[in-house]
């Protein structure tokens, strides 16, 4: 029997992932590739919003999509069918989030350097994806009008992390008690710098504004 000794660690359980995410972000910056991590509750409209947006930008910039899913490949197929851009499915193997290593292996599989912008549709969930940094150069979230205007109060972390919040399904506002102004105030309370864009994938209201937002972001990212 050897001698027992204590090793002090005193570090966050997420520290290793944070380090790897920073390295990945730096590699993406050098390659001038934007990686956008898209988060939301299940069914808030990630795939639909990406489809609307990509159809407006795909002639101007080269785009790819990585779909994270616990097990299926429905979303990746839907993106290919409805936009024609390259898309791959990442399986999280039962995990409720993607981490930096999983993201990197997905990027390597599609040879990421040939794209201007890559969207990563994270697992539908407001808690875990917010905790695990994927290495993305931009984090965004989608909040649908059916979820309630008080979500920013209940899930602080994800709203602090995202500098763009898309309010989706505004065509359905008449059916829900969702106060858009109150929701915007709640988001600003968590993150005063957040850009907020209300949209509908049904009527396409707001999609132009979203398109302009991304084309400008890609331009300034390339120049930085």
């Amino acid at each position: 029997m050897g001698q027992v000794r204590t090793i002090l660690l005193e570090r966050s359980a997420f520290a290793n992932n944070d380090e790897r995410a920073d390295i990945l972000r730096e590699d993406l910056r050098k390659a001038k590739v934007m990686l956008v991590n898209v988060m939301s509750s299940p069914g808030a409209g990630k795939t639909s919003t990406l489809t609307s947006l990509i159809n407006n930008i795909k002639d101007k910039v080269s785009v790819a999509v990585m779909e994270a899913d616990i097990d299926s490949d429905v979303d990746a197929k839907s993106i290919v069918k409805n936009t024609g851009v390259d898309s791959i499915q990442l399986h999280t193997g039962g995990m409720c989030h993607l981490d930096a290593d999983m993201t990197r292996s997905g990027l390597d599989a599609i040879d990421y350097s040939k794209y201007d912008i890559i969207f990563l549709e994270n697992v539908g969930n407001l808690v875990c994806p917010a905790e695990f940094d994927t290495g993305a150069t931009m984090d965004i979230m989608i909040l649908s009008t059916s979820e309630g205007d008080d979500k920013p109060l209940k899930y602080p972390l994800i709203f602090q992390k995202c500098n763009l919040v898309i309010i989706s399904k505004i065509d359905a506002l008449k059916y829900f008690t969702f106060d858009t102004k109150k929701c915007i105030d709640n988001i600003k309370y968590r993150n005063k710098d957040a850009t907020i864009i209300p949209i509908s994938n049904k009527t396409k209201e707001g999609i132009e504004e979203l398109t302009t937002f991304f084309l400008e972001k890609i331009k300034s990212y390339k120049e930085s």
Partner: peptide, 16 residues
């Protein structure tokens, strides 16, 4: 705002 309470921290290990 929350000051403490949302951390998950590896504190120490005893090894042989």
């Amino acid at each position: 705002y929350l000051v403490t309470g949302n951390e998950v921290k590896m504190k120490q290990i005893e090894v042989e």
